[in-house]
Design a protein around this nucleic acid. Structure first.
Lengths: 373, 373
DNA sequence: TTGAAAGCGTTACCAA
DNA sequence: TTGGTAACGCTTTCAA
């Protein structure tokens, strides 16, 4: 049997209430009491049961992270930054990989709902209305997608696509192809939209190639379709697809970037290591996670721990989630100051936070001058 | 306020006890009762609070996964397979990334301990004795390391190194270098040991290069040291280091595999995509996670939910974790049959399970004939 | 077959 | 400053 607060109380010769106080708020007990409690706790190896605690406080100190596919290197980066920031505020992280199956998302959220204080949904694939059904229930921040009424953190796809198109245009490319990712992906639509605008603005030709899985295999499957178009450069929904394109294009004997230029999106960690190194649009993957956690913390501080209407007894007395400033001001670890102007913040008409992170084209070896035709 | 069992009871016109029974074990209530309860639950959107439940049953239906670095592509693969298998048995997964800091591990485990039924420690870096302190407390399965008294799942490093060395020997290499990973890594020691044995058996020369971080940067940092040795081929602790080696070796003008052959370990997903494609020793990453979960489930079925000595009242009545056979026999999803002989199982003298998974050399482009000297 | 009541480990409130 | 008591939501035992 695990050691409980009662064991400590008995050994320390005080009541459980005092043990609780001594441990939670040492200032509210006599120094001697505090000391004897601390000694007893140490001696017994007592660690409070967070589960029991959460039952009464309504706070679990857990965060839920739901994402489509951990095998896509983009997501581990995001999860890692979420973890780091969550740990700073003493939150543990539940992880749920839905395997790109939109139907799994809602049950996954449901299963975790009672055990977490809030959710970070990374690139969720489920329909808006399904996700919206959780609106009143739990604080939710959405990453890489915008769904009213949730706060969101997204990347500036438009800006990224503009940079990519400007780059290709300068290299002489006039005919582009885009290999689209999952139909259910908001960011695919966002990127596609940005690309259309950018090409249209320059009067360039754009061929769009069907929806493929956001994987290397998906890219490989699209490569031959690309070769059948007049495109001299191809932009992929993400780096994995770009990598698959390169693979298969090379296998078909196409030189890259000699014959075809390839541009990815995300700048996953291996992008610079492949042959040729991938030109891609970088997103601040660490920022996404960090900013996401910060927004969620804010949201949870607003929303009472026990989700109830304002004015409820519980709502009134619950200690809210630690205010964001607590940790940011002079918390445990020093926080790197943000480079000024590095991120854009805004709120929509209802006051919902929408953070749009900047993107940056990284030019590497997979793009070059358009071939003579 | 979330809907509780009382709300359902009120609407259904029965007691909370009956609601509990109706939902948990429909056979033990009158059909009419069952129906009215089910209707009420549906109408109210009732979902039992697993946290409250766990307080009394002692089961959380959560698993804790602790690993050193999600940024190493090896781990997402493992986590993904853990997730998949855990979901099959209706377990949720806590993830804790320790950032390669051995000191963070114990607190991380401690923090999760009360919220999980068991742990999967992936390549833990903490000292044996620290980890052993959890021995009686929670079921723990260790991945990529062996620590008495925990069951473990490891890869056959010796076999892998033998294959790699045989390959290099056949290509004419006689002088090898090894770039070692973290000092705290058990698998580094295991691989190093295997390599020493393999080279010694063939009378080959082996130079070992200090401990570096198991990252691309770590590999890059070791590259110049490698060039300063007579080695014509270098084996890296893992693929990330191998990738860094290749990067920097190429930057120094060394042709790969012309001048230097490079061999990695793990076969991370991108290994085949880099230039040149990486020759490496593959481990069944999906198997590691799956087998790990299976072992843990077994362990939890043995250990009572409320960790107490046998004979305790709680221990006697607690529903144990679902027996492994439940899901494996004809559970929710069909399970792919294991290829016969694909894995090795054994138990040490104390009956602790030790699974050693086979390794397989994957020959790609980063190895070739030894250069003339 | 059902309901009442106890209790899981903790925190919050009130009275002392 | 401290202790007793109630309560969180659920499951389980016991009695009806």
């Amino acid at each position: 049997m695990a050691v409980t607060i009662k064991d400590v109380a008995r050994l320390a010769g005080v009541s459980p209430s005092s043990v609780c106080r001594a441990l939670a708020d040492p200032a509210r007990v006599r120094p001697e009491t505090r000391e004897s409690v601390e000694r007893a706790a140490r001696e017994l190896g007592y660690h409070p049961n967070r589960v029991a605690r959460s039952l009464i406080t309504g706070r679990t100190a857990n965060l839920g992270v739901v994402l489509p596919d951990l095998a896509n290197p983009f997501f581990p980066s995001v999860v890692k930054s979420i973890q780091t920031q969550a740990r700073r505020f003493d939150y543990a992280v539940f992880l749920s990989d839905t395997d790109e199956d939109p139907a799994v998302e809602v049950p996954a959220i449901r299963a975790l709902a009672k055990q977490v204080d809030g959710f970070l949904l990374c690139s969720p694939r489920a329909p808006d209305e399904d996700l919206r059904s959780f609106a009143g229930e739990k604080p939710i921040v959405v990453l890489n997608r915008r769904i009213t009424p949730f706060p969101s953190v997204t990347a500036d796809s438009t800006g990224g696509m503009q940079q990519a198109v400007a780059h290709l245009h300068a290299l002489g490319h006039r005919h582009l192809a885009y290999v689209a990712g999952p139909r259910t992906s908001w960011s695919n639509r966002d990127r596609q939209r940005g690309l259309r605008a950018a090409t249209a603005a320059r009067g360039m030709n754009l061929v769009e190639i069907g929806h493929v899985a956001p994987t290397v295999d998906g890219g490989a499957a699209a490569a031959d379709l690309v070769l059948a178009t007049p495109a001299t450069a191809v932009l992929a929904y993400n780096d994995l697809i770009a990598l698959g394109l390169i693979q298969r294009l090379q296998a078909r004997g196409a030189e890259i970037p000699g014959q075809v230029s390839v541009v990815g999106f995300d700048d996953i960690p291996v992008a610079g290591l492949v042959g040729p190194p991938l030109t891609t649009v970088a997103i601040g993957k660490e920022q996404i996670g960090r900013v996401g956690v910060d927004l969620l913390l804010e949201l949870m501080a607003d929303a009472p721990a026990r989700s109830a209407g304002p004015g409820r007894r519980a709502a009134a007395r619950m200690p809210a989630a630690p205010a964001r400033s607590v940790g940011l001001g002079r918390g445990a670890g020093p926080l790197p100051a943000d480079a000024p102007g590095r991120r854009t913040a805004s709120r929509d008409s209802t006051g919902t936070a929408r953070r749009v992170l900047p993107t940056q084209l990284i030019v590497r070896g997979s793009t070059g001058p358009a071939r003579q035709k």
